[in-house]
Write a protein that binds this DNA or RNA. Structure first.
Length: 305
DNA sequence: AAGCGTATCAACCGCTGAGTG
DNA sequence: TCACTCAGCGGTTGATACGCT
């Protein structure tokens, strides 16, 4: 038994993607939509494995992706959610719709861990909850506690999905945009990265022929740049690609069952809107946010509330 | 200017869980 | 129920950009 590796075939190209490959991939996705990644290399002739295609799309080519220059608000969200969820980057990314899990993961590993260590060494309270003792190993300093909380409270996956939904609703109910004051669109550190938008522009024709977007959610109080906990990155048109009519279907946050689909299920959406009152987890979230807000003005978590 | 060390990030690898027949 | 496929996730790696001497 066992699944054969998908990328060990002869002739499968590895390494950095070329602009030509990006164009092919984006063209295909504009035409057929994301998903069915298995068929992408076959249909496009790309000498890439399906996994590589999916990764390239989700981490790089999707519209609306914000790159670089994390704001202090975003840092706060990441730190807070990392303390809550652990290294569940996809889940954390669902709260930062314009950031990819890979980007957040990289930023955590390269910036925030150090920053946290430094701040904790200085006795600052930027860090996650007081109950958490900074791990000497750097990461994973506390998330086990929170994992346990979540697991015990609701069961692991379901509990997180539940929490995500409710917290998202709480956030949505606030109306205020956590990131309304976020820094302007970060400049890409990569010259090629910025060319992605150009690729998208080149593909304007494809986008216009894309399937129509799903009906909008019943209510949406966000501005374009707001955090959209209930909206996926793909449903948003980035500032750099605002002219694109291409819009993927609304997705569930990553915690919603852990799968990122492109078909937004109205039934699921309705269920989200009829969630039970605050669970212990939300209460904990509230408490955490309140504590952080009190303890550190800069890194408080108003973005959550 | 060259060499070296460090930081950054795109991409890969392997595992897991959901879906399907 | 089982075998199998596939998409997604998180950890890790490697290339390269950057900064310092």
């Amino acid at each position: 038994m066992g699944r054969p590796p998908c990328c060990d075939k002869l002739g499968v190209k590895k390494g950095p993607w070329t602009p030509e490959e990006d164009i092919i991939l984006v063209s295909y996705i504009q035409e057929h939509g994301p998903g069915n990644w298995r068929s992408v290399p076959v249909s496009t002739g790309l000498m890439r494995c399906s996994k590589s295609c999916r990764l390239r799309w989700t981490n790089y080519l999707r519209t609306g992706i914000k790159r670089g220059n994390f704001t202090s608000h975003e840092e706060g969200v990441i730190v807070h959610l990392q303390s809550l969820l652990g290294n569940r980057w996809a889940a954390i990314a669902s709260y930062l719709p314009r950031r990819t899990d890979n980007d957040i993961k990289n930023y955590w590993n390269t910036h925030l861990k150090k920053k946290l260590r430094k701040q904790q060494a200085m006795g600052a309270t930027f860090a996650p909850p007081a109950s958490s003792s900074p791990g000497t190993a750097g990461d994973n300093f506390d998330h086990h506690n929170h994992h346990d909380m979540v697991s015990r409270a609701d069961g692991y996956g379901a509990g997180q999905a539940y929490m995500n939904k409710e917290v998202s609703q709480l956030i949505a109910g606030r109306g205020h945009s956590p990131f309304a004051d976020a820094a302007p669109e970060a400049c890409s550190s990569s010259s090629y990265a910025s060319s992605v938008d150009n690729i998208s522009k080149l593909l304007g024709g494809f986008m216009k022929s894309s399937p129509p977007p799903p009906p909008p959610p019943p209510h949406n109080n966000y501005d374009a740049d707001d955090v959209k906990p209930l909206l996926p990155l793909d449903s948003m048109s980035g500032t750099g690609s605002a002219e694109l009519s291409f819009t993927a279907s609304v997705q569930q946050p990553a915690l919603m069952g852990g799968r990122v689909g492109y078909e937004y299920d109205d039934e699921t959406k309705q269920k989200q809107q009829h969630q039970a009152p605050l669970s212990s987890i939300e209460k904990w979230l509230f408490d955490e946010a309140a504590d952080l807000e009190l303890s550190d003005e800069c890194y408080s978590v108003p973005m959550l509330f």
